[in-house]
C-alpha cells in the first residue's frame, strides 16, 4: 500500500514536471539582447544545398542571399559564437513585406538590438534597431568563387 502511494505521488510529480516544461516551451518570454553577427540566408546555410557553411555566407553567396530573401526564405543573424538567430522583424517591418529593408542588410556585419525568443531549440530575433552596420566584411569570393556558380551571368 505504501509502495502504491509512493508510485502515485511519483507519477503526480512527474506529470507536474512535464506540465511545467510544456508551459515553458509554449510561452517563451523575450529578453532584450544585442547580437553581433552576419546577416545570412538561413536555408542555404542550414541545408548545405550549395556547399559548406563557410561558402554560403559573405560576398561569395551575396547574390543568392538576395534571391532567397526576396523569395521569402527566412533571414538570420549568425552571431560570432555560431548561434543562428531567425529574424522575425526588422525595424518594425515584417520580414516578408515587399520592401528593401532586409535586402539592404543582406550579408552585412551588424550589431542588432531587439527581442530574443527561444522555443524548441530555435533562436528568434525581433530586430528593433540596427545599432551599427559595417557592411559586408566577409570577403570570401576569392576562396569559394560565387555560390551558386550561375549567380553572375557574365561568368557563364
Amino acid at each position: 500500500m505504501r509502495c502504491l502511494r509512493i508510485l502515485v505521488a511519483g507519477m503526480a510529480v512527474f506529470v507536474w514536471f512535464g506540465f511545467q516544461i510544456a508551459q515553458l516551451s509554449a510561452a517563451p518570454t523575450a529578453k532584450i539582447v544585442e547580437v553581433k553577427g552576419e546577416i545570412i540566408d538561413t536555408w542555404c546555410y542550414l541545408s548545405g544545398v550549395m556547399g559548406g557553411p563557410d561558402a554560403v555566407v559573405g560576398t561569395a553567396h551575396h547574390t543568392c542571399a538576395l534571391w532567397c530573401a526576396a523569395g521569402g526564405i527566412p533571414v538570420g543573424v549568425k552571431a560570432e559564437d555560431g548561434t543562428v538567430y531567425m529574424v522575425l522583424k526588422v525595424k518594425g517591418e515584417d520580414p516578408l513585406a515587399q520592401s528593401d529593408t532586409i535586402l539592404e542588410l543582406q550579408s552585412d556585419s551588424i550589431v542588432a538590438k531587439g527581442e530574443h525568443y527561444i522555443r524548441d531549440g530555435i533562436n528568434y530575433l525581433v530586430v528593433a534597431e540596427v545599432v551599427s552596420n559595417a557592411g559586408i566584411t566577409n570577403k570570401n569570393h576569392d576562396d569559394f568563387g560565387v555560390v551558386p556558380g550561375f549567380a553572375i551571368p557574365e561568368l557563364n
Partner: peptide, 12 residues
C-alpha cells in the same frame, strides 16, 4: 526536416 548545425538546436 533539415539541419544539424550546432548553432541551431532544432531542425527547420
Amino acid at each position: 526536416l533539415i539541419g544539424d548545425d550546432p548553432g541551431v538546436k532544432s531542425k527547420i
